[in-house]
Design a protein around this nucleic acid. Structure first.
Lengths: 114, 114
DNA sequence: ATTACATTTCTAAAATCATCGAAATGACTA
DNA sequence: TAGTCATTTCGATGATTTTAGAAATGTAAT
C-alpha cells in the first residue's frame, strides 16, 4: 500500500499531473495521452506505470487498446489532497490547453497515423 | 511566486517532510535539524534552501544561530494541502521518533560536540 | 584582532529520473 | 496463421537531485 511520500513523488512531475487532469475528463488510451503530451510512447508508458504503482490510476482493456482511468478507490491520502491540487491546477495554461484538446481527441485518427 | 508543481516538488523528499513536521513543533537551528535528520550539515542546508525557495519556511537570526520556522504566510496552495499531508504523516514511525526527540533537543549539547 | 563555531557555498560523487528508440509482447483481424 | 498495431520492456543517455567534504563566510566572544 502506498505511503503519502509515494503519492507525493508520483505527483511531483508535471507530465503526470497533466495525465491525471486529462483522466478527470475521460478515460484515454496510451496513444491518445502520448499525442496530447507530446512525448514518446515509451515515456508515457513509464509515467503511467508510476501512477499505477501509486494506485492512482487503473487500466482496462478494450479490444486493441488499453484505456487508463482514475482509480475508483485510490489511497485515502490521495482522495483528500487531489481535489485541492486539481483545483489549483485548473488555471494553468497547459492544463487549460490539454482540456480543450482532450474533448476532441479521436484515437482512430491519431493512432497509427502514418 | 511558486506554482503548485514547485510546492509538490519541495514536498517530494522525505527528509524535507521530516523537517517541516519538526518545525511544526518548534523553531530549530541548522545543527539541531542536522542532528535529528542524521545528514551532513551541507545537505541539510540544501534542503532548507529548497523549502525556503518554495516559501514554505523562514529563517531568523538569533546570535550565533539561524533559526528556521514555518513561513507565517506560505503560498495558499500549501496552506490548503499541508494540514492534510501533515495529518497523514503523523502515524509514520520516523515522524513519531522525530517528534519524540525534537522536544528534548538542546543545541548547546549537540552543536560543536567534539 | 584572534579564535571559535554555525552556516552557506563550492565542488564533486553517486543515485535517481525523464527521455527516447528499438526490440519484444500481446491482441485483434484478415 | 500472418500481419497489423497498441503497448510494454529493454538499453542507453543526459539531466536533475541527493549527498558529503572542504573551503568560505559571518558572527560572537575572549
Amino acid at each position: 500500500m502506498s505511503e503519502p511520500i509515494d503519492v507525493l513523488k508520483a505527483l511531483s512531475d508535471f507530465g503526470r499531473l497533466r495525465i491525471l487532469k486529462m483522466l478527470e475528463i475521460k478515460s484515454l488510451c496510451v496513444c491518445e495521452i502520448t499525442e496530447l503530451l507530446g512525448l514518446a510512447t515509451s515515456t508515457v508508458s513509464s509515467h503511467l506505470n508510476v501512477l499505477k504503482n501509486a494506485d492512482l490510476i487503473q487500466d482496462e482493456k478494450e479490444g486493441k487498446w488499453i484505456n487508463y482511468k482514475l482509480a475508483p478507490a485510490p489511497p485515502p491520502f490521495f482522495q483528500e489532497i487531489w481535489p485541492l491540487i486539481s483545483r489549483h491546477l485548473d488555471p494553468n495554461r497547459q492544463i487549460l490547453e490539454d482540456r480543450k484538446k482532450v474533448g476532441s481527441v479521436d484515437r482512430h485518427k491519431i493512432c497509427a497515423a502514418v
